[in-house]
Simulated assay, not measured.
Amino acid sequence: MELDETDLSIVRALQGDGRLTYETLAQQVGLSRPAARTRVHRLQESGAVRVAAIVHPAVRGLSASAHLAIDTHGPAAPVAREIAALPQAPFVTLTSGRRAIMTELRTAGFEELERAIEHIRALPAVRTVDPLVATRHVKDPYLLTGEPTVTVQDALDERILAELEEDGRLPFAELAVRVGLSAGATRARTLRLLDGGVAKVVALVRPDVLGMGYLCGFSLRVAGPAATVAEEVARHDRVSFLSTCLGRAELVGTVTAESFEAVRATLEEIRALPAVREVESWLHLELVKERYDTGPHPA
């Protein structure tokens, strides 16, 4: 799908706040309200953009996470799709480099994380699983910063979150019908959850839609405290994700860029940091799964 500058402006606005009203969105991009509504619907129906609520991991009890580099006996694509079926795996890609598959796991504690890793190890076509256990998410476009200031009170709050995870732009009136409350009560509950940091509604966008279709993963071995180096690396605009970790490296991250040259330049800037001892990188060749609303839903 070809996007013009107005489409791109709409996408960027929805990345900041997926529930912007059509009126506000129209004012920001210089369209009429009906025209803004039509363009948003077209973007969603094309599959280029999906607007959804991302619930804070703490609310779902997702306190442990890891990045797995996986090699296979034979073709990797069927294995990647088998891993993508796991609810603990929000992110799965086919990659270049030493390993054929990279996946992220998010689980309710380290015991579940260990079970998920062992499940993947036991898949018949899996040859090697090399995990990096995350200790702190330094930069993450889909992770809310800070802890929630309010709690999920009851099953009605959960139903609201579940509906918004499927469609983050549901109008309050329709959301009210689905959860069985008045429109006013639904609006009050929803705003409480969003303003309190329980969830954030964002536009999930394929990087190529924004002209940033080159994704490169990297891991870093560093000298000295990892946190200090992490802050320097996270300041790079093209570094879209970064986590400190335990395992073969101290940092793992992603470069999202507009060209191979931009990827190369960003990696060179990272290599130039005095505390960086070793850089390993790989290209994400196919995004098999990226969905951060698949965690457990408490009763």
Rank of each mutant, 00 (worst) to 15 (best):
H73E: 05
L62R: 09
I117F: 07
L132D: 01
D237T: 07
C245N: 11
R187Y: 13
V150I: 03
P274C: 11
L246S: 06
P124S: 12
F218Q: 06
L210T: 03
F241C: 04
T128L: 10
W282M: 10
A134I: 03
S32Y: 02
H236R: 05
A122M: 02
V201H: 05
E82F: 02
A36W: 11
G217W: 13
R221D: 09
R235C: 02
E114Y: 05
G18H: 14
L285T: 09
L20A: 13
A199Q: 11
M102D: 00
V11Y: 12
Q44C: 11
F172Q: 15
A108I: 03
H236L: 12
S240V: 09
V276Y: 07
A66R: 08
A53R: 11
C216L: 07
D293R: 00
R12D: 12
L175P: 01
D130N: 08
E163S: 14
A265G: 06
A188I: 06
T24C: 03
I160G: 12
A162T: 14
L215T: 13
S281N: 07
E112L: 08
T145P: 04
R248E: 00
E45M: 10
A183G: 04
R159E: 15
L285P: 03
A262Q: 08
P141E: 08
L287F: 02
A188T: 12
A162Q: 13
L215N: 02
R115Q: 07
D130C: 00
R99I: 03
E258V: 06
L242H: 01
L68N: 04
R291Q: 14
R98W: 07
T6Y: 02
L220K: 07
A173T: 10
A52K: 15
V49G: 10
H119C: 00
A188L: 15
T151S: 02
A26P: 03
K200Y: 12
F241K: 15
P87F: 10
G295Y: 07
V133D: 06
I120A: 03
